[in-house]
Design a protein around this nucleic acid. Structure first.
Length: 289
DNA sequence: CCACGGCCTGATTC
DNA sequence: AGAATCAGGCCGT
């Protein structure tokens, strides 16, 4: 039986845990008071940020690796100040960075990330979260940390076995077919996600878009949020609006041309730039800031 | 290459 | 109230 452990990390990088975990890149974190509960590499962890210190509690099966696991998950090796200096080149981006300083791109598990963004099609964040939680509850392994229970994310094999109709019962709608078929292909080994990390952007993207339910946007999300492609630049409705309104004087560009434009403006950190624009635009009109 | 409609579902808007 | 519309798209025509 795993025993609960508690550690404290000194963070020497800008980190805004709340913005990072609530910026729509990961869908299964839940806030309880000051603590965020979630699953990282099959370990249930609770996080509380106190300035430059991150308090961590976990029922970890590998306590000696917990710190490195979290440093990896939050990409603490990214030099955020260096990244800011590359992309902070106009007033809009400057405002976004000022507002959400410490918002980081995560390095998530590619399989869970893929399913999450397949589920994102024509949906919204609360609903995507509900779908992902339902999938984990139904097919994952239970994990417990004091009185809190969550689940590991089920393997491709498990979801392939579950099948489309069972996933439809979890309210995935038309996305159930995509998730089931993608699970089959990954489970069969026809597509291997982890090695995509070491391929160039374009090659990795072609593999991902060969999966059902994965187009340009979903592929870019998976590449950025789980496969180390910081130049991947997912353009969703929000980012498109932000771009057209703030940078393109209302002009309409197709997906590929927006990518080209973004790479020219923000270079290899276009993905980070995109995340700040997304967050800024999405929260622009919200009462709750 | 672009345009369009359909697709599950639930919340919000009209 | 009940009908449209919208929500971090994808796919087929």
């Amino acid at each position: 039986m795993d025993s609960e452990i508690s550690i404290s990390l000194d963070i020497d990088q800008p980190l805004d845990c709340a913005s990072t975990l609530e910026s729509g890149q990961a869908f299964r974190w839940r806030r309880r008071g000051d603590w965020y509960y979630g699953v990282v590499i099959d370990d249930l962890v609770a996080l509380k940020q106190d300035g430059s210190r991150l308090e961590v509690r976990s029922s970890s099966s590998r306590p000696d690796q917990l710190e490195s696991t979290l440093r990896d998950y939050f990409r603490l090796d990214d030099d955020l100040d260096a990244i800011y200096s590359c992309i902070d080149t106009d007033p809009r981006m400057h405002d976004a960075i000022a507002a959400y300083r410490g918002l980081r791109i995560l390095r998530q598990d590619p399989w869970e990330c893929l399913v999450g963004f397949i589920c994102s099609a024509n949906s919204n964040i609360p609903r995507i979260s509900a779908s992902m939680v339902a999938i984990a509850q139904s097919y994952g392994q239970p994990l417990q940390l004091d009185d809190y229970v969550d689940h590991s994310f089920p393997t491709p094999q498990k979801l392939a076995e579950a099948g489309e109709s069972a996933l439809r019962e979890l309210k995935l709608g038309f996305r159930a077919k995509y998730v089931a078929r993608a699970a089959e292909r990954v489970a069969q080994g026809e597509v291997k996600l982890e090695p995509l990390r070491h391929l160039p952007y374009q090659e990795a993207k072609e593999v991902l878009t060969s999966l059902p339910g994965v187009g340009d946007k979903v592929a870019d999300c998976v590449l950025l949020f789980s496969l180390d492609k910081l130049d991947a630049c997912p353009i969703d409705r929000w980012v498109r609006r932000a771009m057209e309104e703030w940078y393109l004087d209302g002009a309409k560009l197709n997906y590929k041309d927006i990518r080209i434009w973004s790479l020219r403006k923000w270079g290899g950190y276009a993905g980070y730039a995109q995340q700040y624009l997304f967050h800024h635009k999405r929260l622009e009109g919200k009462v709750q800031g």
